[in-house]
Computed example of a mutant assay.
Amino acid sequence: MCVSVAAPILPLLANGWPIVVAVMIFAALAAMGVASQLRAALKRWWSLESRFLRTFGSETLHCVYQPIMNLKTGEIEACEVLARWRDIDGSIVYPDCFIPIIEKSGRTLEFTRIIVDRAHRELSQAIAGDAPLLVTFNVFPGDLHEPGLSSVFDAFTADAGRFIPVAELVETEAIDVKTMQSRIDILRAGGVKVLIDDFGAGYSNIKNLVELSVDGVKLDRSFGMAPDGTVAARMLDLAIEMIHATGQSIVIEGIENEERLEQMRRHHPPVDYVQGFHLSRPVDIAAFQKLRAEAASGNGAAAVGAGAGPVREPHALAFA
């Protein structure tokens, strides 16, 4: 906005220059203040947080699927559902950028419901009902207190012949074992299986592993990438032995190459499931369907490693 005033300057300066100078200084300061406020408003409007919250919904949130392979059969019997957000310019934004915004705005349960519903729509259209597919979702620790968490998975539990929904929970110091177990029991009673996620990373208690009644444990990817002979590799062996002793299923993340995959195949006690970029990066529903079909037809070796490049967008699981 621009305001223009025409006036003879010399008479003004001769008769009242102090006033003229004061007015000019005031005008300059006012203009600077207005400009600063406008810049701040525009920055807030176009910030990542503001753009995300303005467009938050099923139209801009998308799902990708990372295959989880059964080491014994070589088939893709599960997938982890991960979220992506499409920005207003069409670019794809990864969860580490927008998850803190969701947590800050208190919309975690709404977000999970959107992702679960979208995943069910896509998977139900693409996956045949020959055998149940285990579909895992990351659950925000704070949502364990929400009474509506179990109902988020209703679409999958109502389609139990084709899908087995799984909630991946991360241990936190804010939730004690007794409280966490009561929440787990509610989920399992509603037909949702439960995994302890990222075991071995951050806060992780061996006592909790023994005391918590869950369906399986997912070991942190740092274990899957641990070189032979290292402390982490030895800890991996010990962790597998402990989990195997509890009778829970084991999923190991971070399988990045063929050598590591073969090591997991030969491991004793046996490892149940693996996932990682060597099998596939997270892919869209069409690519996931193709990978699963190749593995089921006996061409699993061709599928392994198919997703190692840039991201492009009858066996039942043995979880007890």
Score class of each variant (00 low, 15 high):
Gln37Pro: 00
Met24Tyr: 08
Pro18Arg: 08
Ser50Val: 02
Ile25Arg: 04
Gln37Lys: 12
Ala22Leu: 14
Phe26Arg: 03
Ser50Gln: 05
Gln37Val: 07
Ala14Asn: 10
Ala14Met: 11
Ser50Thr: 03
Ser47Glu: 02
Val21Trp: 09
Val34Asp: 12
Ala41Met: 12
Ser36Asp: 07
Phe26Ala: 15
Ala31Tyr: 03
Arg44Asp: 11
Arg44Gln: 02
Gly33Asn: 06
Gln37Glu: 11
Leu48Pro: 03
Ala27Cys: 15
Ala35Glu: 12
Trp46Lys: 01
Ala27Met: 14
Leu10Ala: 14
Leu13Ile: 04
Leu12Trp: 11
Ala28Tyr: 04
Gly33Thr: 09
Pro11Phe: 05
Ala14Pro: 00
Ser36Tyr: 02
Asn15Lys: 05
Gly33His: 04
Ile9Leu: 15
Trp46Phe: 09
Leu12His: 12
Ala28Met: 06
Arg44Lys: 03
Ser36Glu: 08
Ala28His: 05
Leu13Lys: 07
Trp45Tyr: 12
Gly33Leu: 10
Trp46Ser: 07
Gly16Arg: 12
Val23Trp: 08
Arg39Cys: 09
Ile25Ala: 15
Leu29Met: 14
Ala31Gln: 10
Leu13Tyr: 08
Pro18Ala: 03
Val34Thr: 09
Leu13Cys: 14
Leu48Lys: 04
Trp45Gln: 13
Ala28Ile: 09
Gly33Asp: 07
Ile19Pro: 00
Arg39Tyr: 10
Ala30Asn: 05
Arg39Asn: 15
Ile9Glu: 15
Gly33Cys: 06
Phe52Tyr: 12
Lys43Met: 09
Met24Leu: 15
Ala30Pro: 00
Gly16Tyr: 04
Leu12Thr: 14
Lys43Ile: 03
Pro11Ala: 13
Met24Lys: 01
Arg51Asn: 01
Ala27Ile: 10
Trp46Ile: 00
Arg51Ser: 05
Ile25Thr: 15
Ile25Phe: 11
Ala40Arg: 12
Ala40Asn: 13
Trp17Asp: 02
Ala27Phe: 08
Ala35Asn: 10
Asn15Val: 06
Trp46Asn: 08
Pro18Glu: 07
Val21Asp: 14
Pro11Glu: 14
Leu29Ala: 11
Trp45Asn: 11
Met24Ile: 03
Lys43Tyr: 04
Gly16Thr: 07
Met32Phe: 02
Gln37Asn: 09
Phe26Glu: 13
Arg51Gln: 08
Val34His: 05
Leu29Gly: 00
Leu48Trp: 02
Ala35Thr: 07
Met24Glu: 10
Arg39His: 14
Leu12Phe: 13
Met32Arg: 10
Ile19Ala: 15
